[in-house]
Simulated assay, not measured.
Amino acid sequence: MTTLPLSTDTAPNRDAGWLSAEKEAVLLAGARKAQRAAAIRVWGLRALIVAIWLGSWEITATFFIDEFFYSKPSLIWGRLVQWFTSGTQFGSVWENIGYTVLEATMGFAIGTVAGIVLGVLLGRSRYMAKVFSPFIKAANAVPRIVLAALFIIWFGFGISSKVATVVVLVFFAVFFNAFTGAREVDGNVVDNARILGASKRKILTSIVLPSATTWILSSLHTAFGFALIGAIVGEYAGAKHGMGMLIANAQGTFDSAGIYAGMIIVTVVALLAESLITALENKLLTWRPSQAQGHTEGI
């Protein structure tokens, strides 16, 4: 009985595999290092721009312009410290932030749901879109910020008038994107689904809504900005609490540092909300990676 010799090719193949894996690990480490270096450069440049801007503002307000009207970073920082340590004359600054965020969030939720529902339904029904088109255009042409004063007359100085202002601002921002997203659905896909026996509800939930998701989510970034604007404007027109009321009071007392301080707080809240919406968008659009990245990278 003849014994066949064992193959000696396994060792070279194994060595080649190890070398390939090691080379890949080195390349990945180099890519991560380059990415970190690029991020450091970007954030370093951003910090430099902010430092130059604040420094020039501080120097200009100290030596060349009247700080009473234009304020300066040191005074604004002092006002922020005062608000967060000692509070405001209208209560804790956290309480006022909470009121504004609550009003913006409630109005944002109501306006978003209404905008998505009506936008998708009218986007899929050309007949109903023609019927309601002039009414929607007329409502969109109304200066909605001015409605804040009318809502105060209707609903009083409480939270209801602020939520109503937010709703009318958010609704149209979401509605038109949802309407366009529903219209952009591939007709061939819908026809094929009907041929296969899909119901209207199945087509709506399985084809139309997923196809319009990118349009809808992209509108949420702008919509929440409108939500904060609506809450601030409503509080500015008349309220007992909220950041808009603090800003209006600062204006009435010629406290320019207080106006800037309120603006900074609202900006931070908006940026935090933007990061949450971006995280939600990336999670919901994992099945469309190119789309999920396209809206967030480079901004």
Rank of each mutant, 00 (worst) to 15 (best):
G123Q: 08
R124V: 07
G98N: 02
W94K: 05
A114Y: 08
I110N: 05
N96R: 06
Y99C: 00
Q89M: 09
I97Q: 06
E95C: 02
G91A: 12
G98H: 05
F84P: 01
S92H: 06
A109Q: 14
S92V: 07
G119I: 12
G111V: 13
G111T: 14
G123H: 03
R124F: 13
Q89V: 05
Q82T: 15
A104C: 03
W94P: 00
G119M: 12
V120Y: 03
F84D: 10
Q82M: 14
S125H: 02
E95T: 11
I110D: 14
V101C: 01
N96T: 04
G107Q: 11
S86Y: 04
T88D: 01
G91R: 09
L118T: 15
L122I: 04
V117S: 07
Q82I: 09
I97F: 06
S86K: 12
A114Q: 10
S125A: 13
W94V: 08
A114H: 08
S125D: 12
L121R: 06
G111M: 10
L118K: 08
F90S: 04
I110S: 13
G115W: 08
N96F: 05
M106H: 02
G123V: 03
Q89H: 08
Q82G: 04
I116Q: 12
R124W: 13
W83C: 00
V120M: 08
W83K: 06
W83Q: 03
G91D: 03
V120K: 01
G91S: 11
V117W: 02
A114G: 15
G111A: 11
E95A: 15
G123D: 04
A114S: 15
A109W: 12
L118M: 10
A109T: 15
G119Y: 02
V81P: 02
W83N: 01
Q89L: 09
G98V: 04
M106A: 14
T112H: 12
T105M: 04
T105S: 05
G111W: 02
G98A: 03
A109I: 15
L102P: 02
F84L: 12
L122N: 00
E103W: 11
